[in-house]
Write a protein that binds this DNA or RNA. Structure first.
Lengths: 335, 335
DNA sequence: TTGAAAGCGCTAACAC
DNA sequence: GTGTTAGCGCTTTCAA
């Protein structure tokens, strides 16, 4: 049995296809009795509207695209959940893709979203897709950058002040007596990674005698954190940092695994540790993790709201919402 | 500027629309020189294929639907990532929805997927959508159940033996001297929650003198675990369990937060704790967590492979793949 | 209040 | 190797 179409429903209800369409979209224009008859026919045939046909006719879909940097990062799942809820309130669905920090994947999802004629896209960029996004905007697909500020500010953005967050972390570490800091993060192409480092550098520069070493990693994952930690743990004490600031909590948890669990280094006594994002697991880690908190759900919700407004009226001036991060101090840096 | 269509491309390249379609889908049928001309025209007009039109013509999309129980659970994000990779290998994309344990959400995504004419759906069911799925199969949308066994076995399934997993956890706890077990999990409608409990019960029944108490929670989240832990911690020592088996790691981590961090109960001395899923964070939690490991990525990949085969040939007999879980012992139960 | 008909962009069958 | 054309299922004028 193939799917029933409006035609089949119309035939069974003995009305025209136009009327069937009307009961679907503007039932107030149809006589109650007719509505009833059509509804029953739909029921009987288990009619399911063909979204592709509807969309073809309408010219665009009722969906939004979202590209996150990493599906495994709870920060992004929280953001995505909030975005979905906000979109659902307005009758939109959201299609999520994870670039996993890869430009080619980002480009792939952008292409998919264009083919799908989504109404707008929300993204945390890896590369610099501004040119591409501008082209998309010309055809009616607006974009809002989340968790990053646009390079050319012609796109709206919703983000958190990562430079301030980096400064917050470094200031805290220096304030509690640490002198040899290390920043573990990468790839450096990611704006968040760069900004958090820049903030830390600013703070370090204010304190002569304090040094900041950069440990570059390939991705913001638990695994990479574990690898970086193993390298740090294997260095002689004199050459080891006395504080590590990780670009996100996933990395920090990996560091915890190799520094504390495997390397048996005392945290925070030998090495203090600060992460970023304050994910749910941070407070329950081996050594509860000091972290820089970001309002993930708020970012997702606000992003969708702005996107929907711009989809409605493309002439709107771009807006830039910047939230402030907050330091949550726990044992990993309390010494 | 509106989007360019095949018509525009054809006009610019001075060929017919059929030829444009051919360079898109079967370029080997077209003269190289023509391919070149058409390609350049596409480039010039920034042509992007309209997926809705293509799909309308083809009768179905190149997408698969996936419904997970919880977006915040790393078990499902791992499963989803593997599913996406497997689908991508076959030229399919996957649209994920989270039911968050709610039947209405599950039904909502099923409707959306039907409207989208996905080729198949992969799901970890909340309710009992068998009837609905059968109707969908009649119209060419096959379904594979993941992380659960079909009630009527007419649908293929890829799952892990949860009864065995529950037994594994309980046997371990009893074997290390525990006598008053508590199972924390819910809602009981979820098959995984039920099966893990059943396995634990089987094991408990083999050991006279061992008791098993069930603490029902509203969802498999860190928050709910925290709430359940607070209740347990507030009970007098004589009335407290000496071991807790949590239906998943999220719950276990929440329990750790309220039992160990807030309640200052010694783990595993006063209460031993075992979780389920062995997510990445389990080994780095306050007290490294004993957990029952499931091959999440393998489940996702296998599920997609079966689904794709069935989409290809709907006459295929349903297959039931059952993986065995594995107990990973860590400190939370080592005493 | 309802019906008839055009057309969204694409693919595939068929003709040349 | 290329062109012509029908038609996928839907919404939306326009007329009755």
């Amino acid at each position: 049995m193939a799917s029933a179409s409006v035609k089949d429903v119309a035939a069974l209800a003995r009305v025209s296809v136009g009327t069937v369409s009307n009961v679907l979209n503007r039932p107030e224009l149809v006589a109650p009795e007719t509505v009833e008859r059509v509804t029953q026919a739909m029921e009987k045939l288990s009619y399911v509207r063909n979204e592709a046909a509807r969309q073809l006719r309408l010219g665009h879909s009722q969906a939004l695209g979202l590209i996150t940097l990493s599906g495994g990062n709870p920060f992004f799942t929280d953001l995505a959940t909030a975005a979905e809820d906000a979109a659902a309130d307005a009758g939109f669905s959201v299609i999520v893709g994870n670039s996993n920090d890869r430009k080619d994947r980002e480009a792939g999802y952008l292409s998919l979203f264009e083919e799908l004629r989504v109404r707008g896209v929300l993204l945390s960029p890896v590369g610099d897709p501004a040119a591409r996004l501008r082209r998309m905007r010309d055809r009616g697909i607006s974009a809002v950058l989340v968790d990053t500020v646009s390079t050319d500010s012609s796109f709206s953005s919703v983000s958190v002040d990562d430079v301030a967050g980096g400064a917050l972390a470094a200031a805290h570490l220096i304030g509690s007596g640490r002198r040899r800091l290390a920043y573990v993060g990468g790839p450096i192409e990611i704006r968040q990674v760069r900004d958090r480092l820049a903030g830390a550098r600013q703070e370090v520069a204010k304190h002569p005698g304090v040094t900041l070493e950069v440990v570059d990693v390939g991705a913001l994952t638990v695994q990479e954190g574990r690898a970086a930690g193993a390298v740090i743990a294997s260095r002689p004490v004199s050459d080891r940092p006395d504080a590590v600031f990780a670009a996100n909590d996933l990395l920090a948890i990996g560091l915890l695994q190799s520094l504390f669990i495997n390397g048996r280094l005392a945290i925070p006594q030998e090495i203090a540790l600060v992460g970023y994002d304050d994910i749910q697991f941070a407070s329950a880690s081996v050594v509860p993790l000091t972290s820089v908190r970001q309002p993930s759900a708020l970012i997702g919700r606000t992003g969708v709201e702005i996107l929907l407004q711009e989809a409605e009226d493309p002439e709107l001036q771009p807006r830039h919402v910047l939230y402030q991060p907050e330091l949550v101090v726990r044992e990993s840096s309390a010494g």
